[in-house]
Measured scan of single mutants.
Amino acid sequence: EPREEEAEKYIKRANGDYDKAQELAKKDGNEEIAEAIKEYKKR
């Protein structure tokens, strides 16, 4: 799923820090991806 791939990219950029990844996504205006990262975190 493209959303998950995007989320993974942010998580990698944030060195595995989900909260930081979420912030990066929000900064880029990717609210949807920020949500996907939140879902990811719950797994």
Rank of each mutant, 00 (worst) to 15 (best):
I33M: 07
I11W: 03
D17F: 02
I11K: 01
E5M: 10
A14L: 02
N30A: 09
Y40T: 06
K42R: 12
K41D: 05
A25R: 00
R43E: 10
A36L: 15
K12Y: 10
E4A: 10
A7I: 15
A25T: 01
E31P: 14
K20R: 10
K42M: 11
E35Y: 07
Y40K: 06
L24G: 02
R3Y: 15
R13Q: 12
N30M: 11
I37S: 01
Y40M: 12
K42D: 14
K20E: 07
D17Y: 02
A36Q: 11
E6Y: 06
K26M: 15
A36S: 07
E39Y: 06
D28N: 04
A14P: 02
N30Q: 12
L24M: 14
D28R: 00
K38E: 15
K42I: 13
I33Q: 03
Y40W: 11
K20V: 14
K20I: 13
Y40Q: 08
K27G: 08
P2K: 13
E35N: 09
D17E: 03
K42V: 12
Q22P: 00
E6W: 10
A7N: 02
K38S: 09
E6F: 06
K27W: 10
E23V: 07
P2T: 15
N15A: 07
Y40D: 04
A21G: 02
L24E: 08
N30C: 04
D17K: 02
A21H: 01
A7Y: 08
E6A: 11
A36F: 15
K9N: 11
E32K: 10
A7M: 13
E1I: 13
K9S: 11
K27C: 04
Y18L: 09
R43F: 11
Y40H: 10
D28L: 03
E39N: 07
E31N: 12
I33D: 02
K9E: 14
D28G: 03
K38P: 02
E39S: 06
R13A: 14
E35L: 10
Y18K: 03
E23R: 06
A34P: 01
E6C: 06
Y18Q: 03
E23T: 07
I37R: 01
Y40C: 04
D19N: 07
E1M: 13
D17P: 01
I37A: 00
